[in-house]
Amino acid sequence: MTDTTPPDDTTRTETDRPAVLVPLAVLEGQSLPTGTPDLLANARVVLLGYHVIPEQTAAEQARAQFGETAMAKLEAFAGALANAGATVETRLVFTHDERTTIDRLIYEHECLAVLVPNGIERVESVLVALRGTVGVGRNTCLVAGLFAESDVDVTLYHALNESETIADGESFLNGVRADLVERGMDPERIEVVVEEAEAAVDAIARHGESHDAVVMGETDPSVTTFVFGMPSEQVAERFLGPVLVVQRERPEE
């Protein structure tokens, strides 16, 4: 890991930067998508290059053969991220199961979010879909950390569930907005949208089309972690842009 924080910036320490895990299947030709360095310019990026090997192959065997190639690619991506201003740590892992690996690294690096890497042209507006008050602090921490010092517009979105009224939803989002402002966001750049939606996933994907990136939570907080839980995976597939999946707080071991 190399500290790439600009030397003249003394107010920011590394811990202020939200940690974002960027997993890339490096040897399957997945590269750092366009626009990712801009999106994550203020993040502490944990760049994970992984290669999934079938069980009949010893992980060691794959590393011996592909380790250097993969590391070289990963370093090039790390360089691009660092040039845009991000702090970068790289990890290269040969694994039989990428979910185990991603999960372990989220925990080890205390990552706030995982990026579903899709390309974008520019970063001008971001949709932040919020489910409820549980763990919302991690969302605000991420959004403020990434965008407080940029000129990105943020739209807070909440799909009402059955027991809520529009007023409930608005007061929830206004609370979030206040929190973001406290963390340094410009209130002018925060918009609030509350609506009744049959299927939240559809609604998020639909709204996402008019934005450049989406921030949303993990699947259902009651279900064991699947990093790309169904809803975020579905959103990412339809939206085709980058999705930041905010991770729940991990229980202490």
Binding site: H51, A59, R63, G67, A70, R91, L92, V93, H96, D97
Partner: peptide, 10 residues
Amino acid sequence: DTGEGELERT
């Protein structure tokens, strides 16, 4: 990691 990547134990 020896510069060529880690191995995940699964």
